[in-house]
Write a protein that binds this DNA or RNA. Structure first.
Lengths: 113, 113
DNA sequence: ATTTTATTCAACCATTTGGTTTAGTTTTTA
DNA sequence: TAAAAACTAAACCAAATGGTTGAATAAAAT
């Protein structure tokens, strides 16, 4: 196996495509068949099906086969992992917001001394 | 320009590579030259330089040229955008954690009636 | 003035990605 | 039992990715 690649690689890459992000967004409202997931996109069924598999491989969705239809549901755990990774940098953007806020306050102080 | 692709595409894809994630992590401790950024990796200088450019194109780092060396610093804004996108799904993983918690409580209730 | 250092650029390569089409497989419906 | 529906699989394609090497550029040090 060449696949020693970190789980985060798969997650972030799954999120790097607008079709897949939109699929996840739709799954947030409840489980959907592959057909239902595919229908909003101007793309062949097989093409959409590949995106679904990509999401599945990243662990972002679970699939249960019911007869001839495959139902997909969101698995949020990997999203949580991605968020956790990002959270490390939270201080950086809040710091910048704080600095911006201080600057704005300084400006209004000048305007209303 | 074919590049109407969403900013999130670029951000998430930049984050989908372990080398680039590690570079960001190092930039969290302060600005670094391309050489310093490249040195920890078993990869050609030019290869690492390409990763830096990728991060730059995603808006994740800023570069200022000082003489012959290029200094890079973290720009956290796109990370904030990515986090915001993920935050929509927060309720899903917290719901699951809540459910797990309820289940654990039910178990301990059984054990200690 | 030469050499060294820090970096990009360009060409190349193998693999992956995102898409297609055509051909199966398996249920369900008629 | 035959046809339709909901899928996957396989083969193909163009473009992007992640890497390489070798040459070019520009600043600093000798």
């Amino acid at each position: 196996m060449v696949q020693q690649s970190d789980q985060l690689d798969l997650i972030f890459q799954a999120l790097a495509d607008p079709t897949r992000r939109e699929m996840l967004r739709r799954l947030a409202s409840g489980e959907q068949s592959i057909g239902a997931l595919a229908s909003p996109f101007e793309m062949s069924f097989a093409g959409a099906s590949k995106h679904v598999r990509f999401l599945e491989n990243a662990g972002l969705i679970r699939r249960t086969v019911r007869g001839r239809t495959h139902m997909c549901s969101l698995d949020p755990a990997p999203l949580s992992a991605a968020d956790e990774w990002l959270r490390f940098y939270e201080r950086f953007w809040t710091e910048r917001l704080d600095a911006l806020e201080r600057e704005l306050n300084a400006d209004t102080d000048k305007e209303q001394p």
